[in-house]
């Protein structure tokens, strides 16, 4: 039972809750609904409207095809549609955070990609005896990109790097296996010589 709860907790840690977008939308909805309700109540109480009375608002909506300049109407409407598309994408896209779940003795562990990248870089750097900064690693949802800039005269095989990274990753048992891409940059690109 607690296993289910932890799976749930880990999943929550790995996906964006979309709270910021939802808060902004909710505040705007409150503002619009409250304003319209206020105009309605003013109309019911036979008071002067703040900006437009409900009846006038409806009339303007009816007359939209003849209203204002084409450019202005289209611009506003297009902006609304684009915001709508962004919101739908936010609602439907998984919103994965840059994290991986790994299985170690501690049970459910969620690790930032950056932590994995820096650990991989350190392992490769140490095993291949490279200077600090010679190994750059990027970890994404599916891939680990390793770029090595060896010192002049040093020969490094991409396959060797791949094996090292695979070995380090096998110790993590990540939720999805990472595809390793290794690239050896030319030595001369370091140290200012071109």
């Amino acid at each position: 039972m607690s296993g289910n709860v932890l799976v749930r907790a880990a999943r929550r840690e790995m996906h964006s809750p979309r709270t910021v977008a939802a808060v902004i939308v909710a505040i705007l909805v409150i503002a619009v609904a409250a304003y319209l309700a206020l105009e309605m109540i003013l109309h019911l109480a036979a008071q002067e409207p703040l900006l437009v009375s409900p009846g006038e608002l409806a009339q303007r909506a009816v007359e939209l095809p003849q209203a204002g300049s084409v450019a202005a109407v289209v611009a506003v409407a297009a902006l609304a549609a684009v915001i709508g598309i962004v919101l739908v994408v936010l609602a439907v896209a998984p919103g994965r955070r840059a994290r991986h779940a790994i299985q170690v003795s501690a049970g459910t562990v969620v690790v930032d990609n950056e932590v994995i990248a820096s650990a991989l870089a350190e392992r490769v750097r140490r095993e291949l005896n490279l200077p600090r900064g010679a190994v750059v690693v990027g970890v994404g949802h599916r891939t680990a990109d390793v770029t090595i800039t060896p010192e002049a005269g040093q020969r490094i095989e991409a396959a060797e790097v791949k094996a090292l990274v695979a070995d380090e990753l096998s110790g993590y048992d990540a939720d999805r296996s990472l595809k390793i891409r290794s690239r050896i940059a030319t030595a001369s690109s370091r140290g200012g010589r071109r």
Partner: peptide, 15 residues
Amino acid sequence: RTILLVTGLVLIVGG
């Protein structure tokens, strides 16, 4: 996500 989806669809259709 429901809030985002509904508001988004309303804006798209209206726009």
